[in-house]
Design a binder for these strands. Structure first.
Length: 559
RNA sequence: GCGCCUGUAGCUCAAUGGAUAGAGCACUUGUCUUCGGAACAAGCGACUGAGUGUUCGACUCACUCCAGGCGCACCA
């Protein structure tokens, strides 16, 4: 990686000039007229030194430049724009680095990371909102793993509690359908049961009382509806397996509320007085003492709320996989909740202090308005995949391609995943079923298509040893590509450190654009520069495949 | 009421305090017709919600206001 060498050389020059304790920021130049890398270090230093030795940024920049020594890997370095130092890499170093394209250098101290994502509760339908935590979490897990971290993928699902009681109530009231249902139908049935239970719970105090009773009985495992519950739970879990397979997710462990609530309840009870308090018959954590808000951990009937269960979970998770960092990929509406719960956790389990992080992502709303699984106003994942798959199939027919089920699936899922990942996690998404999942332009299939194109070229050219000669002269579009390939490593690193898969998504779009422009303009096979261009094509293919893999998107060789 | 988040082109979104604020969609006009058109190029389109301040430099930081979202006790 050239950047590291450049940073080291820059640091040496700065120290020679007597500056200390300075972080060097060496960044990708905003455009190629400013070179390949740029630093504003002189502007920073000039600001710091202005009191006594007055030096302008330009003077500092020139001094640094003069102390850089002999940099054979640079074409040139120059001062510009009032104090920026711009570095132009030599074509040769870019060509030399082609063979390493797609490699990712590990972090020096890669932390052990537990990443918890998914969180879809059983007996509810999975809709577009849930999809975001699945897709974002999986991509993040892959990116962090690629940087050398040991990663543990965890899911945590609510299989006990009021929402379950509501659904079981609904199941009982609707009765089980007499005919055999497939998994999607079962999931849909359970979704309806939950909607019915929720609505009954609100409209009729008598129903409410009965549902609360079911909830209590299920906690005590002596409900007469226990069998119904087990049946629904089983269906739900089978259905989730289907979703995981579809999305390419392999969890290391799925945790359930039913296995942690007892532990959580005990932890809270044991610490009443020290950490928790009694209040109005319930047990609360007095967040107000810490500038936060109070939350109920055990309700007045004595049952643990989500908060208490999270205590039990925290203990179990750490015991299962002692991590340096645990990332909870959960929506932004839970920010306040996590602030309080993390505080309570830290008091209860001091060893967890500083290890917990809530990766908050924005809401996913439909163009038509909000989704709610409580009222049943949702677009389910199955609906989405169906709609997108149909669009993919149409395009394949138009281009008279053989319609391959597996490829249709890969492209449809790729399109959907990319539609989520191209956004920064924090941003809210307005989802338009018809338009949001695009197959053209800035889309997953555009990237997949570009990959397929590289593979097609390579195949047509036949397998050759691809050695790049020395002193190749580069066309502008070729150099742009080489430059782009050089950046891959650090883009991935930044995405992993800042938890922003969208950086990778954006990078791949740019890579695809660069390649497609190059492809459009120049002949590859049987051109005078065939060797070079095939080598570049091969490198682009490798990086594209690797990058798509980091997003959790598969890269078919034909589509 | 208190707290957190968001406000960038007609729409959906980018942009570690840095140089001329970038894409896609939509619209207009082209390229092509021997390596894959799910492609490529050009045009159109933004005083970055309003204002004040900090800074050599502000979409980015601070403060005020406006608009929207989310959260704030027995749901998860």
């Amino acid at each position: 990686m050239v950047k590291k060498r450049l940073e080291a050389d820059l640091k040496r020059a700065i120290e020679k000039l007597g500056f200390t304790g300075t972080d060097i920021v060496l960044s990708i130049s905003p455009n190629s007229s400013f070179g390949d890398y740029t630093t504003n270090i002189a502007l920073q230093l000039a600001k710091r030194e202005h009191a006594e030795n007055k030096q302008t940024a330009l003077e500092v920049a020139n001094k640094i430049l003069n102390n850089l020594g002999d940099l054979s890997y640079l074409e040139k370095a120059e001062v510009a724009g009032g104090g920026f130092i711009n570095f132009f890499l030599s074509d040769q170093i870019l060509l030399d680095n082609l063979k390493e394209a797609g490699n990712i250098s590990p972090l020096e101290h890669a932390p052990k990371v537990l990443i918890e994502y998914g969180h879809a509760n059983i007996l509810k339908e999975v809709h577009l909102g849930h999809l975001r935590t699945f897709i974002l979490g999986e991509s993040l897990a892959r990116i962090i793993h690629s940087l050398g971290s040991e990663v543990f993928r965890a899911n945590y699902q609510g299989d006990i509690g009021l929402h379950v009681a509501k659904a079981v109530w609904g199941m009982k009231k609707m009765g089980l359908p007499s005919r055999e249902m497939n998994l999607e139908e079962k999931a849909e049935y359970l979704g309806r049961a939950y909607v019915l239970g929720s609505s009954d719970y609100e409209i009729d105090p008598g129903f409410k009382k009965q549902i609360d009773k079911i909830n209590a009985d299920l906690y005590e495992k002596n409900s007469e509806l226990q069998d119904l519950y087990e049946l629904g739970r089983g269906w739900s879990i089978d259905y989730f397996e289907l979703i995981y397979r579809l999305l390419g997710i392999k969890y290391d462990r799925c945790f359930f509320e039913s296995e942690v609530y007892e532990q959580g309840r005990r932890a809270v009870l044991d610490n009443i007085g020290a950490i928790f308090e009694r209040s109005d018959g319930a047990v609360i954590f007095p967040g107000e003492k810490y500038g936060l808000h109070n939350l109920v951990f055990l309700n007045s009937a004595g049952y643990p709320t989500y908060e208490a269960k999270d205590m039990g979970l925290a203990e179990l998770e750490y015991k299962t996989f002692p991590y340096d960092k645990s990332i909870h990929v959960v929506g932004s509406e839970q920010e306040g909740y996590f602030r309080v719960v993390f505080k309570a956790m830290q008091l209860l389990y001091p060893y967890l202090g500083g290890r917990k992080y809530h990766l908050s992502y924005g809401m996913v709303d439909l163009k038509e308005g909000k989704m709610s699984s409580r009222t049943g106003e949702i677009v389910s994942v199955d609906d989405l995949i169906k709609v997108v798959g149909e669009k993919v199939r149409e395009i394949m027919k138009e281009s008279r391609l053989e319609v391959n089920q597996e490829v249709v699936r890969q492209v449809a899922i790729g399109a959907i995943k990319f539609a989520y990942l191209k956004f920064a996690p924090a941003s809210n998404i307005v989802f338009d079923l018809e338009k949001s999942v695009s197959l053209q332009g800035d889309s997953g299939p555009y990237l997949q298509y570009t990959f397929a194109r590289t593979q097609s070229v390579l195949e047509k050219a036949g397998v050759k040893s691809r050695e790049v000669g020395k002193e190749e002269s580069l066309e502008e579009e070729e150099r742009v590509l080489l430059r782009r390939l050089e950046y891959f490593d650090e883009v991935v690193r930044q995405a992993g450190v800042e938890y922003r898969p969208n950086s990778v998504a954006e990078y791949l779009l740019n890579l695809a654009k660069d390649y497609n422009l190059f492809y459009q303009k120049y002949r590859i096979i049987q051109s005078e520069k065939e060797e070079l261009r095939l080598t570049v094509t091969d490198a682009v293919g490798r990086v594209m495949q690797k990058g798509l893999d980091l997003l959790g998107i598969s890269a078919p060789e034909r589509m």
